[in-house]
């Protein structure tokens, strides 16, 4: 199949960007979106042109590095799918596809389709960890955790930190990301000790980074490749309220 791509090109953070049009020829339906871009890039390199820069790493939907907005939807709008796992069979021959970077003030574009997501790292540094001495290999059953709690914590831990939630939100809010991290650690016995401090610090760091506020539109959960549910944000709101009333 043949496709027309309208791709955002931008030299660096300080240069203005623009859309460039490329033809992708003989695309195979079994290719992933990124493999299709690889083929386009090979042609560009062969022609002596600058290839399209984009982020990717694992290409199996687990690292959260890939980050493209396809036809206005982060990761392309297929349930529980990162763009590295999005296959070309979802597109039609002759279709025009726009490809843009994540758009949010805290995620400045560095080059073409690559954005700087260090704001997420700062949020994790503020509280996305537990401070315990792990010592030797602990007995897996030494600290009992109920099935209900471990399931919920696992659902939250599925977050790969790609930032699609921010990219999809009309307010560029990071609340789904932060709430997944807060929920994951605050629910488990190992993370409980630092529960209040964690949520207070992570929320402060999120605010300082300039992310927007949640208006409960649900776009974030709709694009999340790990299908983190919206009620994680309610859990964070609850934990933050308890924390600030306790004086955090």
């Amino acid at each position: 199949m043949n496709l027309t791509l309208k791709v955002w090109r931008q030299k660096d953070a300080n240069s203005p960007g623009r859309f460039e049009t490329y033809e992708a020829r003989d695309v195979i339906a079994d290719m992933s979106f990124l493999e299709m871009l690889d083929v386009v890039n090979e042609e560009l390199i062969a022609a002596g042109k600058e290839p399209i820069m984009f982020d990717s790493d694992c290409r199996e939907g687990i690292c959260g590095t890939c980050s493209l907005v396809i036809n206005g939807i982060p990761h392309g709008g297929h349930r529980g799918t990162t763009v590295c796992q999005l296959h070309m069979r979802h597109f039609q021959d002759g279709q025009t596809i726009t490809v843009e970077p994540w758009r949010a003030r805290p995620f400045p574009v560095i080059r073409d389709l690559i954005v700087d997501r260090k704001a997420f790292d700062r949020i994790i540094q503020a509280g996305g960890f537990i401070s315990v001495n792990t010592g030797g290999t602990p007995d897996g059953n030494a600290i009992p955790v109920s099935k209900q709690i471990s399931d919920k914590a696992m659902d939250a831990a599925a977050c790969i930190g790609c930032g699609a939630c921010v990219a999809a939100c009309k307010n560029a809010s990071a609340m789904l990301f932060v709430s997944a991290k807060v929920t994951h650690l605050n629910l488990l016995p190992q993370g409980k000790a630092e529960k209040d401090r964690r949520v207070a610090r992570m929320v402060s760091t999120m605010d300082e980074a300039g992310f927007g506020n949640c208006t409960v539109t649900g776009s974030c959960a709709a694009v999340c490749p790990k299908e983190i549910p919206l009620d994680m944000i309610a859990k964070m709101n609850r934990d933050y309220a308890l924390a600030i009333f306790k004086g955090e």
């Binding site: 206005g72 709008g77 726009t98 843009e100 003030r105 992310f211 927007g212 776009s219």
Partner: peptide
């Protein structure tokens, strides 16, 4: 927080 809009306003979900 969202100074640049996408070319298509899909408002997915």
């Amino acid at each position: 927080a969202r100074p640049v809009r996408y070319t298509q306003d899909v408002f997915y979900g």
